[in-house]
Simulated scan of single mutants.
Amino acid sequence: MNSQDEQVKEIKSPFKRYIIIAGIMILIVLILYFSKFGFYKLSSNQGDWGTFGDFVGGSLNPLLAFLSLIALLTTIKIQTQELSETRKEIRASSRALQDQSESAKLQIFENTFFKMIDVHNSIVLNLSLKKFNVSKYVDNKFMVKFIDNFIELERNEDSKDRDTIRQLHDICKSYTKLNLFSKEAQYEKFYNYYEDKISNYYGFIYQILKFIKDEEDNNQDFKSKKYVYLFRSLFSKSELTLLAYHCLSKIGRKKFKSLLEHFEFFEHLPIKYLDDNLISKFDKNIFGKSDKWKKYLENKQNKFKDEYATT
């Protein structure tokens, strides 16, 4: 027996009792009447029937009226319970539909997110870089001509996929080191030189982070950090450092930099990979809740206060 059948049975049950009670009342009244006045043949006298009717009506009408009132109140109570159950079912159905809708939205987001991750990996796998024609070889290091100067490299060889990023990082770091006070300008020269290779790489990283941020803005219950952490885990330390340079140039500082800061993207990047000139340009949020970064930044701030106090 299903729940609907049980509800029908519960509704019918009290009314069966009321019918039985009404029958018993009628029977009791008839028994009282006949036990008092005895059983006679059907009278042809209207007065006898009037007396009998008055007795039965006067006895049963109040009782049956009271019983009808009880039945009416029972009906109202049952209808109230049914309405309450209906409202509960509607709320439950609404919650279920909402949960299904949220689940469907999350599934659509995740499908798109992981497809974007695949595209990002494909972009990285297609990266490549040819080695420089060596100009000098001094102290086990390669001195190569790059743009408008010579730079020093630990290695000089053809590179592919993620190894290309490491080589680009080494080139960028060596080239920007030539001018400590104009790293942004030096980086922009570096970017222009390799734009055909890395513009798509940077652009798609930005699109993935923007995609996560848009979902976060549109859904208060969305847990963006787990997707950011998953994406960030794909980056080597060299990639994160190269991102730091990129986001401080005019190319990336307008929108890209704020996304990295919002998602605490450099939380696990070792301090030695960024010099003070780069670190000072970022909001401290980019280093997240890392105790090492927190201690380092506090020491730098205290040192600056001490130097300012002595001047």
Rank of each mutant, 00 (worst) to 15 (best):
F222T: 02
Q46K: 10
E195V: 14
Y40F: 15
N156I: 03
K131T: 07
N45H: 10
D275H: 08
I31K: 03
R162K: 14
N302Y: 05
F266N: 01
K289M: 08
S258K: 02
R232F: 14
L73C: 10
F146M: 05
F204D: 09
K226Y: 13
L209A: 12
T311Q: 13
I11M: 11
L129W: 03
L209V: 10
K36F: 12
F66A: 14
V29E: 06
F150P: 03
I271L: 03
Q207T: 09
T80G: 14
Y202A: 07
I28F: 12
Q167V: 10
M143K: 12
T241I: 06
Y137R: 01
N192M: 07
L83E: 11
L64H: 00
I70H: 06
Y273K: 08
D170C: 13
V124G: 07
I198A: 00
Y194P: 01
K295N: 13
E307D: 15
L42H: 10
R17E: 07
K254T: 04
F39I: 04
Y193T: 02
E82G: 11
S94F: 12
L242M: 11
H169A: 14
F231L: 08
A104Y: 09
N299I: 10
G288Q: 03
S43T: 02
Q220K: 13
N299S: 15
D163W: 06
T311I: 13
Q79P: 02
M116Y: 05
E110D: 12
K141C: 09
Y191A: 11
E85P: 02
Y227R: 01
R162E: 14
Q301C: 10
F142C: 04
S94C: 11
K189M: 03
H169M: 14
K213I: 09
K183D: 02
Y308A: 15
I117A: 05
K197F: 04
G23A: 15
Q46S: 15
T74F: 04
L269P: 03
F114E: 07
S94D: 12
M143T: 10
D217S: 15
L260T: 06
I212Q: 00
D139A: 12
D196T: 09
Q107G: 13
D214V: 06
L269D: 02
S93P: 01
L178Y: 01
Y206C: 05
M25E: 03
M143H: 14
K130Q: 09
N121S: 14
S249G: 04
E102Y: 02
R253K: 05
L30K: 02
S59P: 07
S174M: 10
F15R: 05
P270M: 04
R162S: 15
Y33W: 05
K160C: 10
M25F: 09
F190D: 01
L178I: 07
K36A: 14
F211P: 02
K130L: 07
K272I: 12
F37V: 03
R155C: 13
Q79V: 11
Q4K: 11
E110L: 11
Q46V: 09
K177V: 04
F265T: 00
A185H: 08
L242K: 09
K289C: 13
P270T: 00
N219A: 11
D196A: 15
K105H: 13
D170N: 15
A92V: 08
D161Q: 11
E154A: 14
S224D: 03
K77Y: 05
M116E: 07
K254G: 02
